[in-house]
């Protein structure tokens, strides 16, 4: 019996089966999304600390212990700012964009297998549904770019679109290789299949492709082409300020958490413990933090790639490589090696 079923069974005698399902589901969804909403500012703090130390600075240290309350202060600042709608924006798409961007990213956390036997929404097509929902988010970048009535935004939005098309494909193919190895799309099954052998051992190319494509999906340096500050000021979010900007910023960090989580789940065994010691959510989070710090360090170390070079990398190298990798996965799965 999974945790969700157990909770529902406890509640069913009190309010009836259908209400119990609904209440448990909504409560767990709220808890999960609440957790991500709290983790994203936490990551903002972590980012600034990592960045600080990479760049011979201290990062935040004044607000609260170790500067931990800095994101809270930032949040208060953003919320209390004036809500500015620039003249000439296409108000519908401009305002819609700040919901289209974050909402899908937060929803997909419901499909994450956090703990043995605990997924908020355990669907049979788990990983495919997850990637499909997450792929809605970039539409918001194009909407924001178009709606802003700003040439920098348009260019940034179009770059975002080109990048997402180019890198969604290798991302999905890398995940598909894992599905082939597992024989199931269910998230929990993917983690369970890594008992003993984590997939990065048999899928190093897959991990490599997933990380690069993931970086492109997050859109930070070295591939922050959509918001390249020295070229397009801030790309598609040039015209946003206050809490609207806050939401876009939050999406960025939710995306980093998402990609780190997915990498841990698909390639590093999710909640599986090394040497079989105490499986659980703590291992998943530990792996996620390691991947996130790796992504952040990459962000602060490398210069920005050129847009055509990056497109070439996506279509001409990663895409064929991902196909080859799928074949490898197929051979491994068919040969019964994994």
């Amino acid at each position: 019996m999974t945790a969700v079923e157990w909770l529902t069974a406890q509640l069913a005698p009190l309010v009836g089966q259908s209400w119990a399902v609904l209440v448990v589901y909504l409560a767990l969804s709220a808890a999960t999304i609440g957790f991500v909403l709290a983790a994203a500012p936490g990551l903002v703090w972590g980012m600034r600390k990592v960045m600080g130390h990479v760049q011979h600075r201290t990062g935040p240290y004044r607000v609260g212990p170790f500067g931990l309350l800095q994101p809270v202060a930032d949040g208060i600042k953003l919320v209390s700012k004036e809500d500015i709608v620039p003249a000439g924006v296409d108000e519908f798409s401009w305002k819609l964009a700040v919901y289209v961007l974050p909402v899908p990213v937060f929803i997909v956390f419901l499909f994450i297998p956090w703990h043995p036997g605990f997924v908020v929404s355990n669907v049979a097509t788990g990983i495919v549904l997850l990637l499909a929902v997450a792929a809605i988010s970039p539409v918001g970048e194009v909407l924001a770019g178009w709606g802003s009535n700003n040439k920098y935004s348009v260019l940034g939005g179009l770059r975002a679109a080109a990048m997402d098309v180019a890198y969604e494909v290798p991302l999905v193919l890398a995940a598909a290789s894992v599905v082939i190895l597992t024989g199931s799309m269910e998230m929990q099954a993917i983690v369970e299949a890594q008992q003993g052998v984590w997939f990065f051992l048999v899928q190093p190319i897959g991990l490599f492709i997933f990380l690069i494509a993931g970086l492109a999906k997050i859109g930070v340096a070295p591939v922050d082409l959509a918001e390249a500050e020295s070229e397009f000021v801030a790309g598609f979010h040039t015209e946003y300020s206050g809490m609207r900007f806050g939401l876009l910023f939050l999406t960025l960090f939710a995306n980093i958490i998402l990609i780190s989580l997915l990498t841990s789940i698909l390639f590093l065994g999710g909640w599986q413990a090394p040497l079989g010691l105490f499986d659980g959510v703590w291992w998943l989070l530990a792996k996620t933090v390691v991947i996130a710090v790796f992504l952040l360090t990459t962000w602060f170390t490398l210069p920005r790639v050129r847009v055509d070079q990056f497109m070439n990398l996506g279509w001409k190298l990663l895409f064929p490589l991902a196909l080859v990798n799928m074949v490898i996965a197929g051979v491994l799965a068919k040969g019964g090696i994994v």
Binding site: H56, P222, F300
Partner: peptide, 9 residues
């Protein structure tokens, strides 16, 4: 060129 760290160093 997008390498922020260089700036601070």
């Amino acid at each position: 060129i997008g390498a922020m760290t260089t700036f601070f160093w």
